[in-house]
Nucleic acid binder design. Sequence first.
DNA 1: GGCCAGGCTAGCA
DNA 2: TGCTAGCATGGC
Length: 300
Amino acid sequence: MDWQDHKNYITVKARQPFQFSSCLNWLKKRDKEIIYELVNEHVLILIPTNEGAVLGRIEEGSEGVKVSFPESIPSLRGKNQAAQFVNDWFDMDTDILPFYQLAEKDPLLRPLVHKHYGMRIVGIPDLFEALSWAVIGQQINLTFAYKVKRRFIDTYGAHITYKGTKYWLFPRAEKIADLDPEALRELQFSIRKAEYIIDMAKMIRDGALSKEKLQHLDPLSLKKELMAIRGIGHWSAEYVRMKCFRHPDAFPVADVGLHNALKSQLGWDRKPEIEEIEEMAAHLSGWEAYAVFYLWMSNG
DNA sequence: GGCCAGGCTAGCA
DNA sequence: TGCTAGCATGGC
């Protein structure tokens, strides 16, 4: 990570090619999201640090992004954590040139990487949030999923108010661990999903599960560990590998959004089969996550 | 009203 | 290992 302090703001440099505006276009599509707020060409988000949450305002910067702190300026240590958060959120360290070289030879991806040049996989740095969001999103439409997520955050997340707008942190595992599943049912979680999420919260609170512990595992071991968690199947494990652990080879091949994107991009009147998708992706080995992300971006 | 939604578990062969 | 019924809860 490459960042610099400028007193009341910091800059974080990305490995090129990187285009903040392309990442912003991704965020703009998630208009039901409540973790961040988009204003013109910048994004406001509450960033967790060891010294408490700090409001960050992220915008285009030279070879990366500029992060300012409208509400209160953190210490140097806090700034470092904010820089890390942003660096992680936009996957700024990854060298995506190899992916672009492969995509150039792919008739489906070529126009997408040109149109969204410099876009990175916008991630979910927090493990509990990534796991919870995967579970919430399982087998329900995204509109409803965002509704449930909003209720969850409204009810159990912390927030600050700045200029009349509330900025939220995703609920902490410690706060969810002791809940009764019925409490989440009231927010329209299914009873099963409520159990899964509370169980995961318990594992995290008790230290049995943490990002730090899993971070150094190879892809296969990581997937195995994730799938050992009740409620996490193939799709969720790959999703979390992609959005939280930043493995570029993560491949949620069963994803409905991917199927819809392929159907539309191929001009087919049916969705592709899993085997067909795997064949199509064979030449993208190692970069499946980026291919999926750019295809998601093509969904209206 | 019926099909679909960014699937998973448990049970069975 | 591989298949599938049953689940759970709205959106459109």
